[in-house]
Deep mutational scan, measured.
Amino acid sequence: MDEEYDVIVLGTGLTECILSGIMSVNGKKVLHMDRNPYYGGESSSITPLEELYKRFQLLEGPPESMGRGRDWNVDLIPKFLMANGQLVKMLLYTEVTRYLDFKVVEGSFVYKGGKIYKVPSTETEALASNLMGMFEKRRFRKFLVFVANFDENDPKTFEGVDPQTTSMRDVYRKFDLGQDVIDFTGHALALYRTDDYLDQPCLETVNRIKLYSESLARYGKSPYLYPLYGLGELPQGFARLSAIYGGTYMLNKPVDDIIMENGKVVGVKSEGEVARCKQLICDPSYIPDRVRKAGQVIRIICILSHPIKNTNDANSCQIIIPQNQVNRKSDIYVCMISYAHNVAAQGKYIAIASTTVETTDPEKEVEPALELLEPIDQKFVAISDLYEPIDDGCESQVFCSCSYDATTHFETTCNDIKDIYKRMAGTAFDFENMKRKQNDVFGEAEQ
Rank of each mutant, 00 (worst) to 15 (best):
V206A: 05
G113C: 13
N310D: 10
V181L: 01
Y111N: 06
D199F: 15
V147D: 13
R98W: 05
L49P: 05
K156T: 07
E432A: 11
G247V: 04
S338T: 08
P375I: 05
D419F: 15
Y249F: 07
D331K: 12
Y387C: 13
K435R: 11
L177I: 14
T94E: 15
E363K: 05
S316M: 13
S401P: 09
L49M: 00
A425S: 08
C414L: 12
V265M: 05
Q200K: 00
C282S: 13
L81S: 02
C402G: 13
M168I: 06
L189V: 14
E367H: 13
A340V: 13
A83N: 13
N327M: 12
A188V: 04
C302H: 12
L228I: 00
L234E: 05
P288K: 02
L19V: 05
G295D: 07
S20Y: 12
L216F: 05
C202S: 13
E60G: 11
V96A: 10
I287L: 06
M424G: 04
V181I: 11
L14H: 00
A294G: 03
P201S: 09
R240T: 03
E371G: 12
E123A: 11
T194R: 03
M336G: 12
K54R: 12
I46S: 12
T412L: 11
V171S: 14
E125Q: 07
L59K: 14
G107C: 08
G272Q: 14
H306P: 04
R193L: 09
L304D: 02
D419G: 10
K210I: 09
R240E: 15
E3V: 10
V334T: 03
N36E: 13
K89R: 11
L91P: 02
M168K: 12
G237R: 01
G267E: 02
D391A: 14
V25W: 08
R193S: 00
V88T: 06
N324E: 12
K137R: 02
K418T: 14
D405L: 04
C277G: 04
V255F: 03
E204H: 15
N207D: 06
G237V: 04
D257V: 05
R55T: 11
A314T: 08
C317W: 04
V161T: 12
T166A: 10
S242K: 06
I209C: 04
Y38W: 09
L14I: 00
K142M: 13
S121L: 08
M260I: 10
W72G: 04
A425F: 15
P201I: 13
M66N: 02
R208I: 13
Q438Y: 12
S121F: 08
E273Q: 09
D196V: 03
S285C: 12
I352V: 03
Q325H: 07
P254Y: 15
R292V: 03
S403C: 02
